[in-house]
Simulated scan of single mutants.
Amino acid sequence: MDKIIPSAGLGAELEGQLQVVVDALSRVYHRQLVSILLYGSAARGDFISGRSDVNLLVVLQSVRLEDLAEAAKQLRRWRKFKITPLFLTEGELRLAARAFPLEVSDIQESGYLLFGSNPLSTIVVSPEDVRAQSRRELHGSLIRLRQGYLELLDHREALGGLLAGAITSLLPVFRAIIRLDGTPVPSTDMEVVESVASRHHLDRDLLTRLLAHKRGSIRLATADVRQILSRLVEEWERVIVLVDAA
């Protein structure tokens, strides 16, 4: 393993397991393996044990089904720790910078290199591609949010899950908005929400409550869920206008 994993609240057991995963991938793929990066909340220092996934970007020279079969043998053990690997080639990663610039930007900014060379160091993400994906994500998620409300209207607990998923969808867009503003992106999700809400006069109370609900630190009263969802849809439409103006 090339680097020691940074202290991000992962715990000694999970950090040790990550070392096992990196060593296993290095043995399995040998010269095919270009790099392994830790990304997401585990790299940003916003990790919640038992809730957050441990995201790994595994870059190979080629990705064939027989190559993945080797990794699949290890997946059962990794799932216990919510370790989720994403396998891409360097060429696919360059294409992903155009198709998925929000995700690529996040990994460029906070990803932590565990093995090999960093394939993201020479990739440039276009601001227009960022705006385009942000619009797609916002419009698509808003449609799913409305549809979910129709289907789950009489299931308050399920609506709570819908709200948690909604704030999860907003966070990458919020980080993109901060980048388009030309300012550094905070490391934690709560700081991201507070930054965007303050700078662009969004409903800070609503957004921070939803994030706390997603993280499990508060529980929304079932009687309030429908009202909160209504407020969220209104706020969502404001974010769409905000991205269009960025």
Rank of each mutant, 00 (worst) to 15 (best):
L75E: 13
Q147D: 14
N118A: 11
N118D: 15
I123T: 00
L75N: 11
L95Y: 02
D67A: 11
K80S: 13
L120Y: 09
T122V: 14
S62G: 09
Q147Y: 09
D53E: 10
A132W: 08
P101C: 04
N55T: 01
Q147G: 10
T89K: 01
A72C: 06
S141L: 07
L120A: 09
A71V: 01
Y112N: 03
S52D: 10
S52G: 12
V125L: 05
Y149C: 09
K80T: 14
W78K: 02
V63D: 09
R79M: 09
L142E: 12
V54M: 06
F47D: 03
G50V: 03
P127W: 04
T89G: 01
G111M: 08
L138T: 02
F81C: 12
R136A: 13
L75A: 13
V54K: 03
A69T: 10
V124T: 13
H139K: 13
E66N: 05
E66H: 09
L75V: 07
S141R: 15
V54G: 08
G116I: 07
L86G: 07
F87I: 00
D106F: 02
R51P: 04
L68C: 02
E66R: 02
Q61L: 10
F100L: 12
P85A: 10
K80R: 11
R76V: 12
V130L: 12
F87P: 05
N55Q: 15
F81T: 03
P119L: 02
L93N: 00
D106Y: 07
E128S: 12
K82G: 06
A69V: 05
E92T: 00
E137M: 09
F100C: 06
K73P: 00
E137G: 06
E70W: 05
F87V: 01
L86S: 12
R146L: 15
L145W: 08
S105M: 09
R98I: 06
F115N: 01
L86R: 10
P119V: 01
Y112S: 07
G111N: 06
F47H: 04
L120S: 09
L102F: 11
I123F: 12
F87Q: 10
D53L: 09
Q74D: 09
S110K: 06
V130T: 15
Q61W: 05
H139T: 15
R51E: 11
V58E: 12
S134C: 15
N118C: 12
E137D: 14
G140D: 08
L138F: 08
E103W: 06
A96E: 07
E90T: 08
Y149A: 12
G111Q: 04
L102I: 01
V104S: 04
K80P: 00
E90D: 02
Q133H: 06
V58W: 04
F115Y: 15
S121C: 08
K73L: 13
A97G: 01
I143Q: 10
Q74E: 13
G140C: 08
L56N: 01
G116N: 07
Q147H: 10
A71P: 02
R64N: 14
L68R: 00
L56H: 00
Q147N: 13
L138I: 03
W78S: 11
F81G: 07
V124K: 15
R51G: 08
